[in-house]
């Protein structure tokens, strides 16, 4: 009997090792992903749909986090209900995104990003232990598809597009770091300082990259044919791959 009580009191310990992505970084990553979508989808109608989707994702995160924190019956019911309502709001945003914008291309543009936002949130709650990285990768990947779609239909100027692309990569980096920290140290550990330094580091690299690319672009190296530009980029990729081997 004493053993049972002891075990129960241990199970209730607040500081048992629990593998969850770090909260602060997770929140920043979701916000950055939303910013990336907002940069590309700059039509007021699209922004409204994004706002609805954000409300849904916030509800989903709140419910999911509560569900992860407390598994007692009453709390679980409330938490799961909140998460499902949040998801339904997001699904309705998806529906709006599919029907509301007047142009067909604008409809296609927004969809992967909104779904990606939900997947990213699902990876950071996390919806399923052990699948955090897959969900985060898939989520930010879909957000990146929205950025690419924005580039294809030329809805926004190159500068904004560039920024959206970098913000997506930074969001992925911060989310992956949250998963890594949570996996090694658990949710009870104090990690905010390391998270902040890492996020600032990646942010600075991102900003510098945008600056550099815009600067080179601004030099207006005329006469470089499109094919030449491509060859240069492929060479860059090959070089990086070789160097990182």
């Amino acid at each position: 009997m004493i053993d049972a009580e002891r075990r129960q009191s241990r199970a209730a310990d607040a500081s048992l090792f629990r593998r969850r992505p770090a909260r602060t970084s997770g929140a920043i990553a979701v916000v950055l992903a939303a910013v990336a979508i907002a940069l590309v989808a700059d039509d007021p109608g699209q922004r409204r749909i994004l706002a609805v989707a954000l409300v849904g994702v916030t509800g989903f995160i709140a419910g999911g986090t509560l569900w992860r924190r407390d598994r007692s019956a009453g709390v679980t019911v409330v938490a799961v209900a909140v998460a499902i309502i949040g998801t339904l709001v997001l699904v309705s945003a998806l529906g709006l995104g599919l029907t509301r914008p007047p142009r067909y291309v604008e409809r296609i543009e927004l969809l992967p990003g909104l779904a990606g936002l939900w997947l990213l949130a699902a990876g950071l709650v996390p919806l399923r232990l052990g699948s955090e990285r897959v969900l985060v990768d898939a989520g930010t990947g879909l957000v990146f598809l929205t950025v690419l779609a924005g580039g294809v239909i030329q809805s926004s100027p190159p500068r904004t597009l560039l920024l959206a692309g970098v913000v997506t990569i930074v969001a992925w980096d911060i989310a992956e770091n949250a998963v890594s920290l949570g996996g090694q140290l658990g949710v009870a550990a104090g990690t905010v300082r390391a998270e902040a330094i890492h996020a600032v580091g990646t942010g600075v690299v991102g900003a510098a990259t945008v600056g550099l690319v815009l600067f080179i672009n601004g030099l207006n190296v005329d006469g470089v044919p499109f094919a030449g530009l491509i060859a240069m980029l492929v060479a860059g990729v090959a070089l990086t791959l070789f160097y990182n081997r």
């Binding site: 950025v147 560039l162 672009n217 980029l233």
Partner: peptide
């Protein structure tokens, strides 16, 4: 990004690809 940029002939996407190389 590179592939999509080439297929759709969008230089702005090539710029996005260039920033990706920096992160790689």
């Amino acid at each position: 990004a590179l592939a999509v940029g080439v297929v759709a002939k969008r230089p702005s996407l090539l710029l996005v690809a260039a920033t990706g190389i920096a992160f790689a």
